[in-house]
């Protein structure tokens, strides 16, 4: 990736982040902060690549810690965000069913726990 392309990506992503959050109601501030906290858990892929390329014991040790921390960021961020958001219900939904209001996408709640499933 050339430098200027990377800068374009940086600029456009910055605008995207600003616009996506722009009109968010206060009621969602805490879950949203938690959700964006989960998103930067993508650092996991960088930590994996860094550990994958590590050769000396020092590099391996740092890489191990990096992957461990990154996995904690991603999985923990998913766990708490999902817990908070699944509690938000409207009066209609609350009256219609107690707990029958399933999430739309077919992803199981454990979806954030991908790291431990990737053993192949």
């Amino acid at each position: 990736m050339t430098g200027i392309i990377a800068l374009y990506i940086f600029m456009l992503a910055a605008f995207t982040g600003y616009e996506v959050i722009g009109r968010v109601p206060v009621i969602l501030h805490t879950p949203l902060m938690s959700g964006s906290n989960f998103v930067h858990g993508i650092v996991l892929v960088g930590a994996m690549v860094a550990l994958g390329a590590a050769s000396t014991p020092l590099e391996k040790a740092i890489g191990f810690v990096g992957v461990l921390l990154a996995a904690g960021n991603a999985v923990g961020g998913y766990a708490v965000t999902e817990r908070m958001l699944q509690m938000f219900k409207s009066s209609k939904a609350a009256a219609a069913s107690k707990g029958g209001d399933a999430p739309k996408a077919g992803e199981p709640p454990k979806g954030g726990d991908a790291p431990s499933k990737g053993s192949h």
Binding site: L51, G66, G77, A79
Partner: peptide, 12 residues
């Protein structure tokens, strides 16, 4: 994998 399982499990 060890780092992922340990970090992920503790956080989960």
């Amino acid at each position: 994998l060890a780092a992922m399982v340990i970090g992920g499990a503790i956080a989960w």
